[in-house]
């Protein structure tokens, strides 16, 4: 069985968000880069667990990005996975990225493609669905559980106001979220092994990007909290009703 895990480089959750070049570029100064948490904690770790249960399985990681993404992919390889592929491009359009992943997926003939439910920078939740469409596979979005029985997967996914359980024959594309697996810390052996695992760099295929970011904007700063005395909740109710018009 072949598993492809999509990995994205994102700024750490606690990063200060600021922009440069007339608000057209994310300010990377002082930013710590991490593996997108949904890609790491849920999809990659679940893939590793599947391989632990079935050692014949292979896991390939894929990232679409420039050379700056390599430390992140090495970090992912330290957790697990047999080899990594980096598609060498700066483009951030979801369709462009999905088309690159789909191309690699078609070449590799994967049974299972995992993505995180979204990246914590662009929050599009789009790559999984687009890849599924481009490789013509079924798509399980927002999965919280994934189990394999031969070539049939049993999954639990989040729907509006609840969850549903479903069965699907491989191949399938799954977007993963909390519940799939527990976070792991790479150990020294994994870190050492990751240094020598193959990291293949491929050039992107020609695809038209369908979107481009024109500019960024920060939300207006909060005016500051209005504190109300704990023995005067009636005042809070008045403010919420008359000033904020929230109740």
């Amino acid at each position: 069985m072949k598993i492809l895990v999509c990995v994205s480089k994102t700024p750490d959750t606690t990063s200060k968000i600021a922009f440069t070049d007339g608000n057209t570029k994310f300010d990377e100064a002082g930013v710590q880069w991490i593996i997108n948490p949904y890609d790491e904690w849920y999809s990659l770790v679940r893939a590793i667990e599947l391989k632990e249960a079935n050692p014949a399985a292979t896991i390939h990681l894929i990232t679409v990005g420039n050379a700056d993404a390599e430390p992140i992919i090495r970090k992912a390889l330290a957790l697990g996975g047999d080899e990594a592929i980096r598609v060498n491009t700066d483009n951030s359009d979801a369709y462009y990225i999905a088309a690159q992943i789909a191309e690699v997926a078609k070449q590799g003939g994967y049974d299972l493609i995992f993505t995180g439910k979204e990246t914590i920078d662009y929050n599009g939740s789009s790559i999984g669905g687009m890849v599924a469409e481009l490789v013509d596979s079924p798509y399980i979005s927002l999965a919280t559980k994934f189990d394999l029985n031969g070539t049939t997967a049993t999954v639990v996914r989040e729907i509006d106001g609840g969850e549903e359980t479903a069965e699907v024959a491989l191949p399938v594309v799954v977007s993963c979220q909390k519940g799939m697996a527990e976070q792991r810390i790479p150990n020294m052996r994994g870190i050492m092994a990751a240094r020598t695992k193959p990291l293949k760099v491929v050039e992107p295929i020609a695809v038209d990007a369908l979107t481009s970011i024109q500019s960024f904007e920060l939300p207006p700063a909060k005016a500051g909290v209005k504190l109300v005395a704990p023995d005067n909740v009636a005042e809070l109710v008045r403010l919420l009703h008359e000033e904020a018009k929230a109740i």
Binding site: I120, Y122, L210, Q214, S215
Partner: peptide, 16 residues
Amino acid sequence: KTVFSGKAYAHVNILS
């Protein structure tokens, strides 16, 4: 659209 988990906005051009 919202980006960075609600900490900022992006103005995204659709080219298609």
